[in-house]
């Protein structure tokens, strides 16, 4: 089973979101899923109680544009993705600099497993 999504590109995401906004749709969430080398971001919009999803994939180190220009509420979601997955985001209206949840000296991007083989091994032993 798979969530229905419309695939799009990081470049086009802002324009697509703008279209949703103009239709009076609500931005529900953006979900970041790690898939190997790439990060997959699913943007969920609510249209009259039904979910419509946009999906983009991006290499970890490549920044994606921020939706805060369209949906003001996106800043919290995007800060979270940035902090927990190490996803780079351009143009955040309020950038908490990866210090929304974590403190100085904490392990960066704790939700991302990729490039952290050691941590995985530890778990297996545990």
């Amino acid at each position: 089973m798979k969530v229905d999504t419309i695939k799009t590109s990081p470049e086009a995401i802002v324009a697509s979101a703008q279209k949703y906004f103009d239709d009076g749709c609500r931005l529900v969430a953006a979900t970041c899923v790690e898939e190997g080398e790439e990060l997959r971001v699913i943007y969920s919009f609510d249209r009259e109680l039904s979910l419509e999803n946009l999906e983009i994939s991006t290499p970890r180190e490549k920044a994606i544009p921020s939706l805060t220009g369209v949906y003001a509420c996106a800043f919290l979601i995007e800060n979270e993705m940035k902090e927990l997955f190490g996803l780079e985001i351009d143009g955040l209206s309020l950038d908490l600099g990866g210090r929304m949840y974590l403190v100085d000296g904490a392990e960066p991007a704790p939700m991302a497993d990729h490039n952290k083989p050691k941590a995985k091994e530890d778990e297996k032993i545990g």
């Binding site: 950038d95 600099g97 210090r99 403190v103």
Partner: peptide
């Protein structure tokens, strides 16, 4: 009177 605030600043 210094306190920690937004973004650990």
């Amino acid at each position: 009177t210094v306190f920690m605030t937004t973004g650990e600043n």
